[in-house]
């Protein structure tokens, strides 16, 4: 199994079946939806790494709406659009709304797999960055606790040394009194 889960959304049963089969052959985890409504239902229950959706579908939920729903539910989901040459303009608009890329019909599978590879790479880099971030935060909070404790301790000791100095440099007091006072300061720490 490849590391991406993909939801295929297309109202054309032939294309839907073809995409499902080819992606399964490549060992992706695939599920299908026959229109935008079905896609929404599935997305509400389950996370997919990629939604591969036709741009033009019947009903109120077309490709753009599927994109919006998927992104709202989980912004990590990447949306790839399939479009007829005549609606490339709409696809570009969709990319402004957060789609990662679009493919023109008829689908060139080499091109599709290349895009999926790229998405997979980006996701693993993102995962890597998050892990690093987590490791950095852990190190940083441990380090800052230590440094801040030391900072306070050093500052207290500095203050004690200043007080000791004042006492010991007192020209009026006898040595005995000085030692007495110095020890009191010492005990207070």
């Amino acid at each position: 199994m490849k590391n991406l889960s993909i939801l295929v959304v297309d109202d054309d049963p032939v294309i839907r079946r073809l995409l499902e089969q080819r992606l399964k052959n490549e060992r992706f985890h695939v599920e299908v939806a026959e229109d935008g409504y079905a896609a929404e239902k599935i997305l509400r229950h389950k996370y997919f790494d990629v939604v591969l959706t036709d741009l033009m579908m019947p009903g109120d939920i077309g490709g753009i709406e599927v994109l919006e729903i998927a992104k709202e539910l989980n912004s990590k989901t990447e949306v790839l659009l399939i479009t007829a040459h005549s609606s490339v303009h709409t696809a570009v608009e969709a990319m402004k709304k957060g789609a990662i890329d679009y493919l023109e019909k008829p689908i060139n599978f080499d091109e599709l797999f290349l895009r999926l590879d790229k998405i997979s790479n980006v996701q693993s880099i993102m995962k890597n960055a998050q892990d690093l971030q987590f490791a950095m935060n852990t190190t940083e909070s441990a380090a800052s606790a230590t440094i801040q404790d030391l900072e306070i301790q050093v500052s207290r000791q500095r203050e004690m040394l200043d007080r000791l100095e004042t006492v010991l440099r007192d020209g009026q007091a006898t040595d005995e009194v000085k030692v007495e006072q110095a020890l009191t300061i010492f005990d207070q720490m």
Binding site: E140, S144, I147, L150, E151
Partner: peptide, 11 residues
């Protein structure tokens, strides 16, 4: 008030 980074020190 001065706030510096949590792993920084002014010592």
């Amino acid at each position: 008030y001065l706030v510096i980074g949590s792993t920084e020190s002014l010592t």
